[in-house]
Design a protein around this nucleic acid. Structure first.
Lengths: 224, 224
DNA sequence: CCAAAAGTGTTGACTGTACACCCATGT
DNA sequence: ACATGGGTGTACAGTCAACACTTTTGG
């Protein structure tokens, strides 16, 4: 047997789980597959690497093409390599997870002909490949990162109220948080600055608007 | 241009960072490369996938062939994909990290002709590819996991003294830990059981031997 | 003046940390 | 008897969780 024949020659793709929060629901970006396999099913944005392209560049390209947005937070998640993931043969997928604020969503004018949509993670459609599992994995990572880092900034516009901030935590962690304890915690973490602006318009007391001092990723001891 | 030409067709390898502790030093398993590129440099055990082999199977195979051991703890670490990692072209490497107790080290009778050696992570030789960085990444992961999980069991023989346990923490985290607080913490975590055996032979007071009740991986709130 | 969301402190329980001495054995 | 590592408790500080009322606006 030729030595080369004993080796697997797998394909390598990149898939991205893009999360955002709209109307108090955590959503994930999906695309309806126009081809077989899994034609008509929904899938994560993904695809092969182009020549000379790193995985990170590919992720940026995918995010730009499918969500019309640049420069959002993303990180590598996990590499999935089950032999039966794709009926066409061995395809290894390096999954990334990304976060964006809903304010950046633009679907008009996309370079790509496919039809990206945000779906609530609570009611996902039938998913192609093992993408359902990948989303589950990403969700878990998101919950972890919310508790140990300040990534939440990537889901928010530059200025926001403390209530908006709290609601993101409550939505993703799926639990109620005490308002006073929440605000106390953030106050002592010293991550936010008061913009001295105020959000009116609600038919209620106006809220102060805050911004992150350092929107870089930071790892802290314990958030929640 | 043919459509296929725009896609990268990378190779995919698996590399394993096997840690163990010997004589109070954290060691990593390395192999001296017998071929170019980087002939004579040291590298992590790794290689291509065989036909019909998952990444996990490949890791088990590598660990068995290079360290002569089966059934040790391992998990996926990260996928490295820099375009210049390998001078021969784009090679993506899915890195795993593994832990084994020094008691299981057997170098005799290996299926593989190469020469595996354990090197202290404090004094690594010149490394091939980006393997130095991969080890650094793995080391970081190990520190994290020590603090949040009970993986330490994978570095220990089935029975051990509390002092052996503590020394592993001290070695890896590179800090002294208070003996009383350490023992108190482990007592309240309730992970250990007293085997009612005793380790004599030191010219000092004999020590009780403990074992993990559930050697499965568990994630706990906070260890250290 | 009423509805709606913003804003604000205190207490008790728990957890982490600092710290020093006696005990059981081998030589 | 002494050297060596094993084994044990207390007190203080910091953090977490529970809990209710007043304030400011729009309608």
């Amino acid at each position: 047997m030729d030595k080369k024949d004993q080796y697997l020659n797998p394909s390598l793709t990149v898939d991205v789980v893009v999360f955002t929060i709209v109307d108090g629901e955590l959503k994930v970006l999906l695309i309806k597959r126009p081809h077989n396999p899994f034609c008509g099913f929904y899938a994560l944005p993904g695809g092969f690497l182009l020549k000379g392209e790193t995985m990170e560049k590919a992720v940026e390209r995918l995010i730009h093409d499918k969500a019309g947005v640049k420069k959002i937070y993303f990180e590598q998640l996990y590499t999935f390599g089950g032999l039966d993931r794709d009926p066409r043969g061995p395809v290894f997928s390096v999954a990334y997870f990304a976060l964006m604020p809903k304010e950046k969503i633009i679907f008009a004018d996309l370079a790509d002909a496919q039809s990206p949509e945000f779906w609530s993670v609570k009611k996902l459609p039938r998913m192609a490949f093992d993408h359902g599992q990948i989303i589950k994995y990403a969700l878990n990572r998101l919950k972890m990162k919310l508790e140990y880092t300040n990534v939440v900034y990537s889901l928010l516009p530059v200025v926001f109220t403390l209530t908006q901030l709290q609601k993101i935590y409550e939505t993703i962690l799926e639990k109620k948080i005490d308002k006073r304890n929440f605000r106390k915690k953030f106050a002592q973490l010293n991550l936010l600055e008061d913009t001295h602006k105020i959000l009116k318009g609600d038919r209620a007391r106006p809220a102060k608007l805050y911004a992150f001092k350092h929107p870089q990723k930071e790892t802290l001891k314990k958030f929640f």
